[in-house]
Design a protein around this nucleic acid. Sequence first.
DNA 1: TCTGAAATCAGAATGGT
DNA 2: ACCATTCTGATTTCAGA
Lengths: 150, 150
Amino acid sequence: MDEFDLKILKILQTDAKYSLDEIARELKIPKSTVAYRIKKMEREGIIKGYYAHIDPASLNLDYIIISSVKAKYGKNYHVELGNKLAQIPGVWGVYFVLGENDFIVMARYKNREEFMEKFLEKVMSIPEVERTSTQVVVKIIKESPNIVIF
Amino acid sequence: MDEFDLKILKILQTDAKYSLDEIARELKIPKSTVAYRIKKMEREGIIKGYYAHIDPASLNLDYIIISSVKAKYGKNYHVELGNKLAQIPGVWGVYFVLGENDFIVMARYKNREEFMEKFLEKVMSIPEVERTSTQVVVKIIKESPNIVIF
DNA sequence: TCTGAAATCAGAATGGT
DNA sequence: ACCATTCTGATTTCAGA
């Protein structure tokens, strides 16, 4: 992975619709070389895919929450519980962390009712859960997990 | 926004490289109609863009943190502080939340040294910050903020 | 691995309903 | 708004270096 690969990634992470010609022009290398390198990074798993960014607000997903989950200890508790949390509809992020809590869970719902029904009640009924504490997001100031290279 | 729009979004959120022909075949509607609808949703801001998903691990971004930031109160403190946090290199998410804390900050670094230097020292030197508490992510069980429709 | 050229295919534009 | 057709241009393939 060299300077050119990094520049290609930097472009594609912000706009996947950039054409081979445009990238080639900017990097001043032939477009077939750009194509070759992109294919290589796709093969190697450096580029994991391409997706559309859909505005959650357009789908009325205005009830955004970040929840801390403390687990009861036991064998494989964190694998089990992690998977269960990841499968809850509305949940897009599950992180196993060191510190006061065990899991940080990110989720989006239409409203408080949907959150209660689809998230809270489900989480509280999972036997491995000791307790949870949820914070409601008032404003998303930044959310660009696709930006990996600065 | 009807059933077809939703199905199109559902496809594109997981794979933006799906072709018009493929989508048309699956939904059993003409490809020019699919094109028309996608363009419409792009114009309306429902589809905000297309991004490559780059594997952070391939770039050795293994030091992943979730930080809670408590702010000193003052006029516009949360706008100011939010923007400052969002501008720190390595930070990809900043959420203003209700609850014990004021901000939840998501960031990725290569290692502990980089985290200390680029993140912690910067955050601790921001005057609006009262205190911070950081959790280190041991494992990402799920991270797919692009998945909006389940 | 890199590159130019040719071939293929996908997306944009058009115009009629 | 929908859709068939045409046209343009982007991506893939391939062969030589």
